[in-house]
Design a binder for these strands. Structure first.
Lengths: 167, 167
DNA sequence: GCAAAATAGTTGCAAGTGAGACTAATATAG
DNA sequence: CTATATTAGTCTCACTTGCAACTATTTTGC
């Protein structure tokens, strides 16, 4: 599982050119474009599971998943984890709460904040969705070798870090 | 530029498990989640360039870039290239047209369709943006080795293909 | 050659969104 | 302490979006 050889050099070379200054834009090898197109299509494919079958919006699903994973969180923490707007999080929480999936309780020691947690029903909902989305991911990743998968996740992680340090 | 060794195994192993059926979801190694978070943050960072400084919305920028790259296109083709909603494309085209950046002309042989193309002003606008977005991308990619970059683009491409065959 | 289906593109409408004003509570500084 | 700044979360408003309905044209099938 060594280098992922690129048959036909699909991606083209890295646009380094620090000296020499070529400056043409090819969308198919422009990372922001490629990344966004792919992410949107992945999101659209996956979200059909929890929207169609569980009437959860994407923001609601993200809140659900983060609460499932981290236990008790307040809205600000969810904002940090998801990079969603705080108003978006607020509304997603309100909806989930109205549907009895999330409990809210003023936080001890800071009564501005609310401790959010999944209710029993929320956990059950989450538990019923997880296998479906994992299966979907598995299906998507099917063509990737373990090495390719690791490379991918590693580089995405690296880009995320880099991005954090850019502005 | 060989295997991208993963210090500390940031990404975790590929969730293959075809047999054995583990089923826990960890968001930080759940590709759709990681991909979307990254893509959104990349998009937010990059789009500041053409929104703040050129008053272009993201859909408008995408239309502009596709016309610059492919020459004459109709709206349907832009929809294909960008995977944006056709109404979104329609409105972006209308705006660009109103600002004199895009010309429209009924297509020969099919008078439902319109041949869209950049005007001189549209090309000039595009030409002034390209160096900025390329510089931004270069900055983002700075920490990546050429091998990592190729791995990334190759795997993203592969996922895109896979996705197309899923539905 | 014509009726029915398909396609290109626009538009109306309801829902979702982002930005920022706002309320309430807490932290900071002098 | 008290005044000021900061923070958590909600809410309002203007704008964007997605969907479906719609017009106009072209293609298909009989």
């Amino acid at each position: 599982m060594g280098r992922t050889s690129t048959p036909g050099n699909v991606a083209g070379d890295k646009p380094a050119m620090a000296a020499g200054g070529r400056s043409e834009l090819r969308l198919n090898s422009f990372l922001p474009y490629v990344l966004n197109n792919l992410a949107e299509r992945v999101s659209a494919g996956l979200s059909r599971i929890y929207t169609d079958e569980y009437q959860l919006s994407i923001p609601e699903w993200r809140v659900l998943a983060n609460l499932a994973e981290h236990g008790i969180l307040n809205a600000r923490q969810i904002v940090e984890f998801t990079t969603m707007e705080k108003s978006k999080v607020s509304r997603a929480v309100a909806n989930l709460s109205a549907r009895g999936m999330v409990s809210q309780q003023r936080a001890e020691g800071d009564s501005r904040a609310k401790d959010l947690a999944l209710t029993r029903a929320g956990k059950a909902l989450y538990a019923s969705i997880v296998p479906r989305v994992l299966a979907w991911e598995r299906d998507l990743l099917d063509g990737l070798s373990p090495g390719e998968y690791r490379d991918l996740m590693y580089v995405l992680e690296k880009l995320g870090t880099r991005l954090r340090s850019m502005r």
